[in-house]
Each structure stands twice: as structure tokens, then as C-alpha cells.
Write a protein that binds this DNA or RNA. Structure first.
Lengths: 329, 329
DNA sequence: CTGAAAGCGCTTACAG
DNA sequence: CTGAAAGCGCTTACAG
């Protein structure tokens, strides 16, 4: 643990330690020769700046916190990885905290800023209040609400609309939705039907929370009678993959009998038994936007908000033209 | 940003700030009444200890670093999540860093300890050297090597042996291995064949690195002629799932025609088209052991090592008795 | 039971 | 171009 400090270097170099500090930080006022000497000594002794001390002194940590509700959904590890990479490019470390108590952690750790993934809000209002009381730059990523502070919105309603419109353009008129745990998507679904001139049937919304099993059982427990949907939209990547398995096991051919499109575009989706068509935000873009926004906020720059990310439709093999046989009267 | 400090509280409470510090830290020498007053004021003004200052002062950060090679393999997000939870139970924050430069980050951040997932070692020797030069408690998780400092070993060879033995007990004598990027597993495979009295055929090792696609194409590019394997072991979760898809698309029935068992036990494995039999360490156990070890090391306790984790075989639907028809001469 | 003081390793006006 | 000094917000012997 006996690491070399700025004072040791000062002694070795025969200068004051404030000079060492400046040389190390590239202060232009330091004479090149002095700088050289200091850097050489630092290098030789493997000097490592004590970030803690620097942070205490400057009041900044160069760490950005990312609050997530959970890690079990592949979407989150994917986003975390990309965000981590983008932040690093900009000189920041990212630390990940699994929601709920995330805010408390950050108010203690004094990160420079933090990003909250919207899903964490599903659970606790109190959480959101604490969050907005934070005295550091922070914003919500992927929210649907309109907030009075900067945020990045994912236009999920519009995404669902694109999916409905697309399925309708393939001739489907009975389009179901698998999953009832995210209001905004359900609303988007209803509005999309309306905009497309289709009827909403209570019966077309299959109950499913968010897991693979939920999607699977939603389908297995559904009775496909006359006028059953010929196309489904899945709430998220897990639900959709579970539903696909359910449909195949129930003996339906996807997409010949039933079309399926899933929310969230992850690698897993294209590797499903039937490569899944998807709708969802482009995750690379999401990460870039998030990284840039938090950096701007930390720098106290003026930012326009909301930043809106439009989900993209990706056509693969799980959606096809309506054949007008199955389930018709 | 104008957070209240220990000095403000001292002024408010009419005591010295060292007294405040002690009261806040539950020092028993402080009179209960004083302590009450201090705590009340702290509470009232939402005092938050500046962890940075505390860390600088005590030299400890209560943060543990976890170095990973990548985040794209679901195995890693799974382990990260579990480890995070276990560390939190023990009063530590975990920060995740994507390998390669992980060590540098930690030597700067001065975490209290760090854990390195073995895979990161596949790529750089230099990395390992830096790692072992770290002046903080640290250990390698999931290694196969014998090290001179504490480590947690996953006995992959024994795991592969169990898989081979199991397949052999089902009557399979031609057992292939999909994946050639991890020497230890290949060695385990060869040794297992030997121990089981089976022949090793160069041709039974299908080249595949580590991704889903690698597994898929390994199978699609393989020519299943006479004496082809009737059972395969997949290198990891992704390769195995890719291989399963490959087999199914090639028209084989799994497990009737060909049995498949995959390394890594993750939820995804049981949700594959055919619920995959697996071999692999129990991840909850892995996380618990890792958390306990790092905490012990930080506390300078004597620990026995290596800690060895034995992979477990889980039988699901992708493995069945050899029928002796396909590929036989 | 409490307080004055030194110290953790940096940064940064300020003076020279 | 360089240095002395104060300060970031805590903890912790040490003295009383």
C-alpha cells in the first residue's frame, strides 16, 4: 500500500509539491524541463494519482452513476455495457447500482452525475422524489413522462404504432398484445388500433408481466378460438421470446399462422427459433445520447430537452402476410 | 451542492466537530444526550457524510472492483448481478469495469479490493502481471491455474468429465466437443475421454470461439458422415444455444438423434427450444464464495485456498439414450 | 466525556 | 516560471 505521493516526487525532483501537481496536470506555466523531470520520476516510481484526494480537493469525482431496476433482463446488461463504453470515451467511470437504494448510494458517493433508467420508477414514487431532490446533475433515461428537467424520452407509443401499422399493412386486422405491466405500451397499443381504424378487444391483451415465463404462459393459457388474433406484439424481449416458444409448442407456425413482433431489439431476438421482427430504440444511439447529455449537464451547458429517441422497426422472419384462414369465422 | 458538513453541525450543536464525528460514528465515549442532539440535527438537515473525505482519511473506500472481459455474454451480467447483491449485504459497493484497462482504473480509484474474472486473462499476459502487482487485496475468480495467492477455482475439467461420463452412461461412445477457444475445457474433454475409455478423434472437436454464431456455424459447417458424434458438449451457453439451433435446422431431432449438453447453467439454457442439459458451477454459490473471500482478504484474515467449486450436472431435455442408428456403419 | 490539532493527498488562488 | 499556504471534509491518536 505504500504508494508514492506527490510529495515524494517533489523531494526527488527537488521542487515544491505544488509544482509537481501542476506538472502532472499539464499546467502550461511549468517549464518544459521541470515538467520532463517530474514526469520521468513519476513514471519511474509508478506514481498513481490518488483520485480520492483529487476528488476531495476539486469536489468532482469523474464517476457517473447508473441506476437500474434489475440486471436479469438482457436489455439492461446490454445498455449498461454500451453506456459504460460511451462514458469511458468521455473520461468518466460508470458505476452501476441496482435501483431502489441507488439514490442513497449516490448521495453518499458524490458521483458527478447520475442517470436513472426509467423502469426503476415503476416501483416507487418515493424513489423519484429522492431522485429529483439530488443536488447533482441527473436525468431520467427512457421515460415516457414529460418532466421539467432534462430527460431522454423513448417514444414507445410511436414504436407500438409502427408495429401495429406494419402488421396491418400485412393484412392483419386482429392484432393482440402480450403483456400488461407497462401502461404506456398498452396505451400506445390502444391508440395505435384507433389510428389504424381497428377495434380494441379486451380479450386481445394477454396478461404477462415481464419475464420469459410470463410470455410463455400467456400464450399457453390463451384459448385461440374464432376471431383470435393473427398477430401479436410482445411487451419486451423476454416476454416475446417466451411467447414464441408458446406459440410453437402449441403447434402454430410463426409467421405462417401467427405473426409476432417483439419490443426491444437485442441480439437474442434475431437468434430466436424464428428470427424475431422487432420494434425498439437503437441501443447504440441511446447510449451515445445518454453519455452526451450527462456530460453536458455536468459542464453546466444549456441543453434542449427532451431528447426523443424513436424506436425502429426491424423486419425479420416472424412476421408475414395475413393468410385469412386461421381463426376466421 | 451546498451540503451540510460536520462543521456546520458542530456549530449548530454547540460542540466541537470531532465530537460530531464521533457521535455520528457511534463512538461509545460520547454522552448519549450529546449524541442524540447531534443525530437530531444531522437528520434535520439531511446530513450526508462525504464518503470521499472519509475515504481519504481512513484510506479505505468500501468499494470493491470487479473486472470482466466483456458484458455481451449473459453469464457475466448474471454473475455481476449476484456478486453485486452479495457484496452489498456485506457493506460494500461493487463497481464493474470492463477488463483490459480495469487494473489501471482500480489502482487510481483505490478500491478496497478487487476481483478478476478469469476470462479476462485469456487475452493479455501483461494484464495478469499488472494485476498481481496491485497493492490491494485481490483474487482471481474462476481460474483453472494454480496460483500462489488465494483464488477461487472452478473445476472445469471435472465438469467436462461429468458431462462425458453422463453421456457415456446413456450409451454414447462418439462424443464431440463444440468450441476450441478454451484450452482447459479441451484438455478436460480429452482427459475425460481417456478416463472413460473412449477414443479421441481430432474430427470430433468442432471449431467455435465463443458466440452464438460460432456455435451455429460450427454445426452447419460440419459434415455428419458415418461415425459422426451422437452427442456433443458445447463450450459455453452461447455456443451451445447456437449449436442447438444448427442441429435443429439441419433436421436433427435433439435429443433423439443427437444429444447436446452445454457448459454454463443460466436461465436461458432451460428456455432453449429444447431445454438444455447443462454442466457448470452453481452461480449463487460462486457469488457467495467470491464475496466472502474478498471480505476476508480485506480484513486480513487467514484464508485457505484454493476454494474449489465443482460444476454440477443438470439434466433436462436435450440428452437421451443412444439409439444406435444414426451415423453407425 | 469532550476538544484541539494533525493528517489523509491532492488543487488552486496568490504572491513572488 | 515556481513556491508557500490554505483548503477540501473527514478520522483519530492524544491530552485533558
Amino acid at each position: 500500500m505504500n504508494l508514492i505521493t506527490i510529495k515524494d516526487i517533489a523531494k526527488l525532483a527537488g521542487v515544491s509539491y505544488s509544482t509537481v501537481s501542476k506538472a502532472l496536470n499539464g499546467d502550461p506555466r511549468i517549464k518544459p524541463a521541470t515538467k520532463q523531470k517530474v514526469l520521468a520520476i513519476a513514471e519511474k516510481h509508478q506514481y498513481r494519482k490518488n483520485i480520492l484526494a483529487q476528488q476531495l480537493s476539486t469536489g468532482r469525482s469523474n464517476i457517473i452513476g447508473f441506476v437500474l431496476g434489475e440486471l436479469s433482463n438482457p436489455l439492461f446488461s446490454n445498455i449498461s455495457g454500451k453506456l459504460h463504453a460511451e462514458l469511458k470515451k468521455r473520461g468518466y467511470q460508470m458505476i452501476l447500482v441496482v435501483a431502489h437504494d441507488g439514490v442513497d448510494v449516490f448521495s453518499q458517493l458524490r458521483v458527478d452525475g447520475c442517470i436513472l433508467w426509467d423502469n426503476a420508477l415503476d416501483y416507487q414514487d418515493a424513489f423519484w422524489k429522492k431522485f429529483s431532490a439530488l443536488t447533482m446533475p441527473c436525468f431520467v433515461l427512457g421515460t415516457d413522462e414529460s418532466l421539467s428537467s432534462p430527460y431522454i424520452k423513448v417514444d414507445r407509443k410511436e414504436g407500438i404504432f409502427k408495429a401495429v401499422e406494419y402488421l396491418n399493412s400485412l393484412g392483419h386486422t386482429r392484432i393482440g398484445f402480450i403483456g400488461n405491466s407497462q401502461n404506456i405500451k398498452l396505451e400506445g397499443y390502444k391508440e395505435a388500433l384507433q389510428r389504424t381504424g381497428l377495434n380494441f378487444e379486451e380479450d386481445y391483451v394477454l396478461p404477462a408481466h415481464s419475464s420469459w415465463e410470463d410470455g410463455y404462459f400467456a400464450i399457453r393459457n390463451y384459448s385461440f378460438g374464432v376471431n383470435a388474433p393473427t398477430a401479436f406484439i410482445g411487451l419486451n424481449n423476454l416476454v416475446t421470446r417466451g411467447a414464441l416458444r408458446g406459440l410453437l409448442e402449441a403447434g402454430y407456425n410463426v409467421p405462417r399462422d401467427i405473426s409476432l413482433i417483439g419490443y426491444d431489439d437485442l441480439p437474442d431476438m434475431q437468434y430466436a427459433e424464428v428470427a424475431l421482427s422487432t420494434i425498439g430504440p437503437e441501443l447504440d444511439e441511446l447510449a451515445v445520447q445518454a453519455a452526451e447529455l450527462i456530460v453536458s449537464l455536468i459542464r453546466d451547458e444549456v441543453v434542449d430537452y427532451p431528447i426523443v429517441i424513436q424506436p425502429k422497426l426491424i423486419h425479420r422472419s416472424s412476421t408475414a402476410v395475413y393468410r385469412g384462414e386461421l381463426f376466421d369465422e
